[in-house]
Amino acid sequence: MRIHSQALRQIARHAAAEYPAECCGLLVGRGDEVRTASAVRNLLGGERCDRFELDPVGHVQVWERAHANGEDVIGCYHSHPDGQAQPSSIDRRLARGFGGPFGYLVVAIDGQSGDLEVFSGQIQEDGEIVPVPLEIIEGVDGAGGGTDGGSLAAGAEDSAATA
């Protein structure tokens, strides 16, 4: 998966803003290139801090916008506040229900330090989530860089509107 550094910062900012609840959203782009991250409301965000359910109404809205721009929804992301940068057992179980291919990012955020760690994966056709290398495409501001996930600063500059 390749992701624009700006999109990754959008995700980082979203995860920090929603902490201690989980955030969720969609990855928009073409092929395996994520150009933007679109925040979507977590239907469970007000109930508990260890679950997400992406609002399907927001999903439709993001999809229609992407379609109008000649892009596609190519994956999703969510955060694990004070958790692991790995898909959990429930992540894996629910991914099996529909299958892929579909990009899958998990961002672990440390509430004390603000540090983030990213898991980059793909839901395969059989529903299994497998890790994939993450290539960060430098933005015009020159931020970002690195492969295979890793850490990134939580102080993202780019806001992401919640659909």
């Binding site: 801090c49 679950r51 359910e53 992406l54 694990h80 506040p81 958790g83 959990s88 629910l94 299958g99």
Partner: peptide, 9 residues
């Protein structure tokens, strides 16, 4: 749409 859900635990 695929329903997208999960969580940390």
């Amino acid at each position: 749409l695929p329903p997208l859900a999960g969580g940390a635990t």
